[in-house]
Write a protein that binds this DNA or RNA. Structure first.
Lengths: 149, 149
DNA sequence: AGTTATGGTCTCGTTTCGTTACCAATGATC
DNA sequence: GATCATTGGTAACGAAACGAGACCATAACT
């Protein structure tokens, strides 16, 4: 009743929506919602990106640092540790000098990439639309600001 | 060659991995990667959660505030504005007193929920595994700390 | 006059983040 | 044999983002 079928967009499975409804009824807090727990972790600035970079093959710290480009060593270390802690990434140290460390996805980490791939395809397909929307929004905002001045 | 087939886990589509490879070769910066652009935005603490809460039907500001529980009004406003700017959410004001404002998903916003649902199912299925991994990691870390003391 | 309700905004103290400097150990270079 | 480069980080500091709570405008109700 709340949503009319005016387009043939892909649908969100009813089962999932029921899931959401349930959470909403209970009030979703970080403490009581497993999905919150997971999303809060990999939903940070760098985690998904790093998982993607490790998709094909293991990489060394410095290779990751170069691949991502605008991540600092500090954040790279921090993110990798968190991914390792969550069991998505495995860290191997070869005690040479200078040290050599590589990072590889675990099975769990690889399994995460499957749904993430869906998200990436979506982002790629829709990002033009999003950028357009942003431009429009910003333009309207500028007009509104001029009016109230 | 880099990945042995020892388990029957769901696979990451080769096509997607090639996508990642390409990015990696170029060096993924925020500026040159559309997916980065999108991920940086909805990959924040609250966006996904709010999209989920709006899945079934439009909601008022206060309803969202209650549903999410531990979000502050400040962040709720900020996140909703960003979602609106990106064209994922529509804001409607009814000029009554006290004011009434509701937020609903746009078609674009609804389309985002499809891949997100995949991620949520994953999180739900795997979060036990993740928690276990965390506990193990923390225990090992504690041991290491004791040794070096 | 005082209370309540809504959808925010403002301010302030805390957390988190990004930048830069630095380190240890070894092999190569001069 | 002193110097330098390399790798995978850590430490310290200033900047930006965040969370909690006070505050506001308006009108209906008591």
């Amino acid at each position: 009743m709340t949503r009319e079928h005016t387009s043939n967009l892909p649908e969100v499975p009813e089962e999932i929506i029921q899931h959401f409804d349930q959470w909403q009824a209970e009030g979703v807090d970080a403490s009581n919602c497993p999905v919150r727990d997971v999303l809060d972790r990999i939903g940070d600035k760098w985690s998904v990106l790093i998982l993607m970079m490790l998709a094909r093959e293991p990489k060394r710290f410095s290779a990751l640092n170069k691949a991502v480009g605008d991540i600092s060593k500090r954040m790279l270390t921090q993110t990798l540790r968190a991914l390792q802690r969550d069991g998505l990434v495995e860290r191997t140290v070869y005690p040479t000098t200078p040290p050599r460390v590589d990072y590889r996805l675990t099975d769990l980490g690889r399994s995460a990439l499957v749904p993430l791939a869906g998200l990436i395809v979506w982002a790629d397909k829709r990002h033009e639309e999003i950028r357009t929307s942003r431009d429009t929004f910003d333009k309207e905002e500028a007009v509104a600001a001029r009016l109230s001045a």
